[in-house]
Computed example of a mutant assay.
Amino acid sequence: MTTPRDAAFRVAVLDVLAKRVSAALTEARKEAEPVFAAARVEGNKQIEVALPSGTQVGTVSIKASDDTVNVNEADVLAWVLDNAPGEVEPVISSSALDQPDVVAYIRRFYPELASKRVRPAYRSKLLGQLNDDGELVDEATGEVVKLADTVKSGPSGAFVLTFEKAKNGKPAGRDRIAEAWQSGEVDIRDLILPALEAGEQ
């Protein structure tokens, strides 16, 4: 019969094991990202996760690069004021909320708290028309206006791991991995022992 002391010891040992394996997983994911980034640059969007036998148990999907678009809000506002002034609305600074007056009076009594902005829906529509160089091309006049800069960056290596689902009577990917180490097809000692020896991070 399990004693309270035995139960406490079991929980403590498994807690240490779980934390060290979790830390090892975090480190393994971090080390995998530059490898996956290089694979994505070479055109690989997905990588099959397979057991030594070749049985697929999952898929790593590598995320594409995240381009950063830096919108020049002052240029956007100036363009809209010139070309679609009805899409500009007054904006009250959040500090106006400390005033006891009604918002309608703020523009009259506290003009320094008021500013202008492009209506969000129109701004989204306008930015959706920018070309890859952050330029807006006026179809009527052919005028080109630079409204944003796009900072291109390579893939970070960020990824999503998905396991095969159980189907056609075959077990799910996670279960196949467990079966593989239980059968000896996969030796997890090379993965687990370094995690145990590394100590809790």
Rank of each mutant, 00 (worst) to 15 (best):
N72D: 15
V118D: 12
I106F: 15
Y122W: 11
L81C: 01
A74H: 03
R119G: 07
P90C: 13
G86R: 04
L130R: 02
Y110L: 13
S95W: 15
N83C: 09
P90W: 15
R117Y: 13
D67I: 02
V88I: 11
G134H: 01
V88Q: 05
V88S: 02
R123V: 00
R123Y: 15
G134Y: 00
D67F: 03
A96Y: 06
G134A: 00
A104G: 14
N70P: 04
V69N: 01
S124E: 06
V76W: 13
V102P: 12
E135S: 02
A78R: 04
S94F: 13
G128C: 01
L77Q: 03
N83S: 05
V91Q: 12
D133L: 04
D98N: 09
D133M: 08
L97P: 09
A104Y: 09
E89P: 01
W79L: 08
T68C: 15
V118E: 11
E135L: 02
P120I: 00
L127S: 03
R117C: 06
D101I: 08
S93I: 03
I92F: 13
L127Q: 01
V102A: 09
D101M: 07
D82W: 10
V103R: 03
P111F: 14
E89D: 04
V91A: 05
R119M: 04
A121H: 10
R123S: 13
V76G: 02
D101V: 07
Y122E: 08
A104F: 13
D98W: 14
A84G: 02
F109H: 12
S93V: 05
G86P: 10
S115Y: 12
V80I: 04
L77H: 06
K125G: 14
P85T: 03
V71A: 14
R107C: 05
Y105R: 05
G86W: 11
V102M: 10
A78H: 10
P85Y: 05
V118K: 06
K125A: 14
R117L: 09
N83D: 11
S95R: 15
A121D: 14
S94P: 00
L81K: 07
N70S: 14
L113R: 07
N72R: 02
P120K: 06
A78P: 11
D66I: 09
P100W: 03
F109E: 14
S93G: 13
V71Q: 12
K125D: 10
V102Q: 05
K116H: 12
P90T: 07
